[in-house]
Structures are given as structure tokens and as C-alpha cells.
């Protein structure tokens, strides 16, 4: 067991724990936007940890796992951004505790240029 192996197992462990917490967050949060918050952040770090951890455990796979990790780190925020925008456009309002905390209301139809 070398240092790399220990580091790899530690990263995979942290990764799967965050994957679980992300899924739990998606289950527990009250509306779409909060679900996206929990889901995107926790599953991104979870997937990065798991994939790079396997890359360290199996050094000859490292470059390909690195490419998968970079792809996930770039694509996950983009898809969550698209989902948040789409949800707002079909009329799902975010839950807020006070009334005037939705700065996006009223401007969401302004940018129809594309």
C-alpha cells in the first residue's frame, strides 16, 4: 500500500459520502431551486472525488479519469443553470420567507433575443 493508494481510498470515501448527501438534499429540500443547489454542489464534488480517487488507485487510468472529471466540473453547473432558468420560465416561483426577495421577477421575459 503506497501513499497514492491511501489517498485514493480517502478520496473515494469522501466522494461517495458526498454523493449520498447530495441525493439526500434533493430528497429533503422544499422547492426546485434549493434542490438544484444541494444536488449540483454535492454531486459534483462527490463525482470528482470518486473519479479522481479511482484515477489515483489505478495510475495508468489517470488521464482518462482526469478528462471525465474536468468534463463533469464544466457540464454540471451548465445543466443546473439551464434547469433553473427553464423552471422559472414555466412559472415555478421560488419559495421565499419575505415578499420582496425575488429580484428576477418581471425581468425574466426581457432577453428573448435568441
Amino acid at each position: 500500500m503506497s501513499v497514492l493508494t491511501y489517498l485514493g481510498y480517502a478520496m473515494v470515501t469522501v466522494g461517495v459520502i458526498f454523493l449520498f448527501l447530495g441525493a439526500l438534499g434533493i430528497f429533503r429540500m422544499p422547492d426546485v431551486y434549493n434542490r438544484l443547489q444541494a444536488g449540483t454542489k454535492a454531486t459534483t464534488l462527490g463525482a470528482l472525488g470518486t473519479i479522481l480517487g479511482v484515477g489515483l488507485l489505478q495510475p495508468e487510468w489517470f488521464w482518462k479519469t482526469l478528462i471525465i472529471a474536468i468534463f463533469i466540473a464544466i457540464s454540471n453547473p451548465i445543466s443546473s443553470h439551464a434547469l433553473a432558468r427553464g423552471s422559472y420560465k414555466i412559472g415555478i416561483k421560488p419559495i421565499t420567507k419575505e415578499d420582496d426577495m425575488d429580484a428576477y421577477a418581471g425581468v425574466e421575459t426581457e432577453n428573448e433575443e435568441e
Binding site: L21, L24, G25, R28, A38, A42, P94, K97, M101, A105
Partner: peptide, 16 residues
Amino acid sequence: VAKRVINPKLPINPGI
């Protein structure tokens, strides 16, 4: 996120 998800009371105050 982990702190908020594990807490049984869900301490959130969301807005845009």
C-alpha cells in the same frame, strides 16, 4: 450544503 441537509430543521432563507 451537508450542514443544511443533515440539520433536521432545514435552516434556509432562500431568495433571488
